[in-house]
Design a protein around this nucleic acid. Structure first.
Lengths: 236, 236
DNA sequence: GCTAGTTTTCGACTATTAGTCGAAAACAAC
DNA sequence: GTTGTTTTCGACTAATAGTCGAAAACTAGC
C-alpha cells in the first residue's frame, strides 16, 4: 500500500539571513536596506548573496545563524532575529543539494557597523542582481517584516534606543512604502502600551521647528497585539 | 578574523505535520483534535508521534510532507497545509542528528477518513504522552492556527463546504477556547467579503428552532486581511 | 389548531478604535 | 518682532466591534 520508505539521504543544511536596516540612501532619503555581500566564486560569481553558511554538527539553526552573522556584522547590533522558513527546492543550488533555513534580522537605524570589504547595505529600491534564490528569500523576509510591523512592536528593532515620532513614521514609511500619519501612529502605539516618553527632546534642525519629544519602546522583545477584538477573550 | 569554515556535515532531514481537525470528542462536544500515531519502536516506543518521514533526494519539504501524509490520511481531505518552522536542536532525537521541518495541516469538520490501525484523532484537551519534541511542535502549530483564525480566512479548511454560522462559531470556540458570538462572527467575516450564502438551509433538530441559513467561504485559498487600518495604504 | 420551547436571524444601540485636520506650541533665521 | 518650520495636541468624523433583545421559523405535545 504505502511506497517503500524513502532513502532518507543526509543533506547539506545551511542558514541564511536577510538583515534589514533603515538608513539614508544616495539621495539622503530613509529607505530599507538589506545586508548582502558580493560572491567571488561560483556559483553565481559576481552576484550578491545573503550572509550565512553551513549548519555545524553541534548547533541548532538559530545558533548557527548567529555564528555566521558574526562574520559580517557585530552581533550586538542585531536587535532581532527570527526564523522565516526553510527553502528546499532540489535545484535551488546548482550541482549539489543544499537545504536552507532563512531568517529575518533587524539592525536599528543609525548604527553603522564596520563591514568586510565585500559586504554592503543595499537599498531594496535598487537591489543588484542576487545569487541563487536569495532574491526570493529577501522578498519573503520583507513581507514578514511588513506584516509584523502592523500587529507587533517589532519596530523597536528598527528604531534607535530613543527616537521622535517623526523618525518612527519615516521608518514605517521605508518599510511599508506608504505614508503613515505621525499623530495616528503615536496614538495607536501609545494606546497599546508600547511607547514611553524619555522626557528628553531633540533640538530642531537649522530650519527651526518645535523640539520633538523623545520616546522609547517599553519592551525590547517581540510582543504581539491580538489583531481583532472580535476574537479576543471577552474578559476585558 | 573569521573562524574556520565550519564542517558543513550532511544531516538527516525529516518532515512532520500537526494535522488538526474539529470533531466530536467522547462527550459529543466539538473539540480540536490532532492526527497522531503510536510508535511501536524505539525511540520513545509507546508514545504518540506526528506523521512524517525523511526528506527524499528529489523533493522539497512541501512535496515530501504530502507524500508522507498520504500514508496516514487521504490527501484530498487535507484542505490546507503550510510550513511552520524548522526544529534543529542537536539533541532532539537521541542517538542521531535529525533536523525536522514542521507543518500545520487542516482537515475539515465532518470528514472521517479511514486511518491505519496505529493512527487516531486525539483531542488536544487530553493528549497522550508525545514522543520526542512533537508535543512542542503541536503547541507551536496550535498557536499559529489560533493567530491565523483572527486575521485570515483559514477557517475554510476547518469548516465543511457548506455550514451554518452556529457551526462556524463552534469551530472558533474549539480552536480559540472561548465563546465567539455568532452575530458578530457573521458580520465580521461578511464585511471582509469572506462569506457567501448558498441559499440552502438546514432543517432544525428534533428540538425545533428556526432553520439555519447555509454559508460558504468565497475563497478556498488562504487570504489575509490587513489587521490595522492605521497601517494600510490610504487609497481606500 | 394552539401553546410552549427552541434555535436562528436581524436590527438597534453602544463602545472602541482609527483617520483627518487645524490650531497652538516652540523653535531658527532674519 | 516677523516669517517660516516642525512638532504637538485636541476635536471631530469614520469605521469597526460588542451586546442585547425582539422577531422569525421551526418541533413537539396537547
Amino acid at each position: 500500500m504505502t511506497p517503500d520508505p524513502p532513502p532518507s539521504t543526509p543533506i547539506r543544511h545551511e542558514v541564511l539571513a536577510a538583515v534589514f536596516s533603515v538608513r539614508a540612501d544616495d539621495q539622503g532619503f530613509a529607505s530599507l536596506h538589506v545586508l548582502i555581500w558580493q560572491r567571488a566564486q561560483a556559483p553565481d560569481a559576481g552576484r550578491w548573496a545573503l550572509p550565512g553558511g553551513g549548519l555545524g554538527p553541534d548547533e541548532d539553526v538559530e545558533g548557527s545563524m548567529r555564528r555566521h552573522l558574526a562574520d559580517k556584522v557585530d552581533l550586538a547590533e542585531v536587535a532581532h532575529l527570527e526564523q522565516l522558513a526553510t527553502f528546499s527546492a532540489p535545484g535551488r543550488v546548482p550541482g549539489e543539494r543544499v537545504v536552507a533555513t532563512g531568517f529575518v534580522g533587524l539592525v536599528p537605524w543609525g548604527v553603522s557597523p564596520s563591514l568586510p570589504p565585500d559586504t554592503a547595505w543595499r537599498s531594496l529600491d535598487h537591489l543588484p542582481a542576487t545569487a541563487l534564490d536569495h532574491g526570493r528569500i529577501i522578498d519573503r523576509a520583507h513581507e514578514r517584516l511588513r506584516g509584523k510591523l502592523s500587529y507587533t512592536n517589532i519596530a523597536f528593532a528598527l528604531a534607535q534606543e530613543a527616537f521622535t515620532i517623526a523618525a518612527l513614521s519615516r521608518i514605517y514609511y521605508a518599510v511599508l512604502g506608504h505614508h503613515v500619519d505621525p499623530t495616528n501612529l503615536q496614538r495607536i502605539l501609545g494606546r497599546r502600551g508600547m511607547l514611553e516618553r524619555t522626557g528628553g527632546t531633540t533640538s530642531p534642525g537649522r530650519a527651526g521647528g518645535r523640539p520633538a519629544a523623545q520616546f522609547t519602546f517599553t519592551t525590547r522583545e517581540l510582543r504581539v497585539t491580538d489583531p481583532f477584538a472580535a476574537f479576543r477573550p471577552p474578559d476585558r
